[in-house]
């Protein structure tokens, strides 16, 4: 397991770009895909499936713009390989609204003006939904800390917090 780059181009051709079959359910739609091992879930969504709602803000897990829900849990899609998620269920920002309209968190983002440029917004929304499912945020400080994995350079944080508070309140009322 030496830590050296490949020496020859043959190394590259022989194994690298071998494709593997995986199936994924993304926003309720099943996809049968041939993916290369090095493709991240984020690049799969954005570059291969043209699902560009999920954003790339750093590609290194340092900003949260790429947050999606994997099996209902929020993760950074930039730091995980598509090939490792055969059979998984993924929800992205494109999958939140339904025939009845926007997801309440999406609507609340609009009402509270919880974004400006909108680039971190899909990640913030997925993160909010993930946070609500986790059920760990009890106080304002908890909310702030548990939303800190999503950087908003426009500085809409205080409005985002209002959305989360409202969503938690609604969630509490719905689940006795």
């Amino acid at each position: 397991m030496r830590n050296q780059p490949h020496e020859t181009i043959e190394d590259v051709r022989s194994d690298a770009i071998e494709k593997h079959h995986i199936s994924l359910t993304i926003n309720g739609t099943s996809y049968n895909l041939e993916v290369e091992p090095w493709t991240s879930v984020l690049d799969l969504l954005r570059e291969h499936l043209n699902l560009t709602g999920t954003k790339k803000g750093c590609d290194h897990g340092q900003c949260g713009a790429c947050t999606i829900l994997l099996e209902g849990k929020r993760i950074n899609s930039c730091l995980t390989l598509a090939i490792m998620h055969d059979g998984a269920e993924i929800t992205t920002i494109e999958g939140l609204a339904n025939n009845d309209g926007l997801h309440p968190v999406q609507q609340a983002f609009i009402e509270h003006d919880a974004f400006q440029c909108g680039y971190c917004t899909p990640g913030q929304i997925c993160s909010t939904i993930g946070l609500i499912h986790e059920g760990k945020a009890k106080t304002l400080d908890d909310i702030r800390d548990l939303m800190s994995g999503n950087i908003c350079r426009c500085g809409a944080y205080n409005n985002i917090v209002k959305v989360v508070q409202e969503a938690l309140e609604n969630h509490k009322n719905q689940t006795p």
Binding site: E47, N50, G53, D113, I125
Partner: peptide
């Protein structure tokens, strides 16, 4: 007033510079 572009931004349909596709696009 709510942002008129809010709907696009909260649904992921607002497209930014790297999100436009074209046949034969290369990187």
């Amino acid at each position: 007033k709510n942002r008129v572009d809010g709907l696009k931004k909260v649904t992921g349909s607002a497209k930014y510079a790297a999100e436009f596709n074209a046949p034969g696009l290369v990187h």
